[in-house]
């Protein structure tokens, strides 16, 4: 066997391959077996090496998407609101303890209709990022969102959310203020409202912090956005126990728009300008505007009760398991 092939295998799998190789070499020394017996075993091993090589290539492809989803020059929630809504008014505070700037919420007009918008905003330079806390929400932000969603529901305003967050803010104060309960409540409010909810994942869809704003009648993802239960870095730290597993983790987690469409977790993929949204931010905003406008037209015709029950059955049917 050509040992050069081994160089392209991800480090994490090398041990396994080397183990099989040495086992094969040992077997070869037993005089009872003739050469023919090893051909199949060698071929199987080579196939395995090929698989691992393609895994490595695929992991690199997925990692590029992860990097694109985090690109600073992609349009952010604020850009989409500016480009899509007219007469937009920002609303602040959870009316309990404070205001979370990392989550934008407010009302504006699309095609003459009042629509509520909520979304994470990461900020584009270091100064902005400090203000927006890198788009990492705290309980006050999720409770503000709930307040605006309930308000929208009462007045019959459809809701559009823009998801772009590494995750909810992991901090002592956020935990003390009930981060877990705030996220759970947001999810629960999104199931209760009877107005149409359109969710657009525009960048990073990080875990519970993203899901808290992502229960939609229709959930769309930009081509190079991601949506994951944990960051690839976090997953590698836990399962691979080593940062070298990060790219492989990104692949295994199936966090790309294509994967998630196949798994029916999302309903639609919105194509990006060539090379990614950062290459033509204004065009990206226009594409999303066309999508949101069209989606609203489709959903405002459906009755509230139907919207609510369809949303529940969509999410309640998610899952794969064996049933005897």
């Amino acid at each position: 066997m050509d040992l050069k092939k081994l160089e392209e295998i991800p480090k994490n799998y090398l041990k396994e391959i080397l183990g099989s190789l040495s086992k094969l070499e040992k077997l070869k020394k037993i005089p009872f077996f003739t050469g023919i017996h090893f051909k199949d075993a060698e071929r199987a091993l080579e196939r395995k090496i090929e698989t691992y090589k393609s895994v490595e290539r695929d992991a690199r492809r997925v990692w590029k998407i992860v990097e694109l989803s985090r690109n600073d020059n992609r349009p952010q929630c604020r850009d989409y609101i500016k480009g899509i809504f007219e007469d937009f008014v920002d609303l602040s505070g959870d009316r309990l303890t404070g205001e979370d700037k990392s989550i934008i919420a407010g009302l504006g007009k699309i095609n003459g209709r009042t629509v509520a918008a909520i979304g994470h905003n990461k900020g584009k330079d270091i100064k902005e990022r400090m203000i927006y806390n890198f788009g990492m929400g705290i309980p006050q932000g999720y409770r503000k969102s709930q307040r605006i969603m309930e308000l929208a529901d009462r007045f019959g305003f459809p809701i559009v959310t823009f998801i772009d967050t590494p995750g909810a803010y992991p901090a002592i104060e956020a935990e003390d203020d009930g981060q877990a309960g705030a996220i759970a409540k947001s999810i629960s409010v999104m199931f209760k409202v009877k107005v149409p909810i359109i969710v657009v994942l525009v960048g990073e869809g990080g875990s519970g912090g993203a899901l808290a704003l992502a229960i939609g009648n229709e959930v769309a993802m930009l081509e190079n956005s991601t949506y994951s239960v944990i960051s690839p870095e976090g997953c590698a730290a836990i399962l691979w126990k080593n940062p070298s597993g990060t790219k492989l983790a990104a692949r295994e987690l199936r966090l790309t728009s294509g994967d998630l469409l196949k798994l029916k977790i999302i309903d639609r993929v919105i194509p990006e300008p060539l090379g990614g949204a950062q290459n033509a931010p204004e065009r990206m905003v226009k594409i999303v505007k066309r999508y949101v406008t069209g989606a609203l037209e489709r959903y405002v015709r459906i009755s509230g009760d139907e919207l609510k029950s369809a949303k529940a059955s969509k999410f309640e049917s998610m899952g794969f398991f064996n049933k005897e």
């Binding site: 999810i187 899901l211 836990i238 399962l239 966090l255 529940a312 999410f315």
Partner: peptide, 20 residues
């Protein structure tokens, strides 16, 4: 984690079921 984003969706699924 081994169930990827489907495991994240179980949060939505359980909240919806118990919401009923």
């Amino acid at each position: 984690m081994q169930e990827g984003t489907i495991s994240l969706m179980q949060m939505a699924k359980t909240v919806s079921s118990i919401g009923r």
